[in-house]
């Protein structure tokens, strides 16, 4: 899985809070810097960060329910059998 890490730790941000359940713990920060705003999403149970820009966030809003269900499949990205199957399984058609 591609994760962006530590590229600019110093970017000032508003810590929006931690979204947690018994299944996941994620810290969400709104960062204002460079040439615009982005959302910093950090998996606190693993060392992984994802930055999301406005268009990516908007796309999430419009993603259909099937796509979200597919995203929750542990085998889709994070826990894949390396070299034992297709590199990336295609998402089902929306």
């Amino acid at each position: 899985m591609t994760v962006a890490k530590g590229d600019d730790e110093a970017t000032p941000g508003i810590e929006l809070g931690v979204v947690a359940s018994e299944f996941a713990t994620v810290k969400v920060t709104l960062e204002q810097g460079g040439s615009g705003a982005r959302l910093r999403v950090e998996d606190l149970r693993a060392d992984a960060v994802r930055y999301l820009d406005a268009l990516e966030l908007e796309s999430l809003v419009w993603a259909p329910e099937d796509w979200w269900r597919r995203l929750l499949d542990p085998s889709l990205h994070r826990w894949r059998d390396a070299g034992r199957g297709p590199e990336i399984e295609s998402l089902p058609p929306g």
Binding site: R69, L72, P74, S75, R78, W79, R84, P86, E89
Partner: peptide, 21 residues
Amino acid sequence: WTFSNTGDLLGAPFNQGYGGR
């Protein structure tokens, strides 16, 4: 193993052991 809140199996890690998706 991951399930939807309606009970459906959404996936299992390393699913090639089950013949893929």
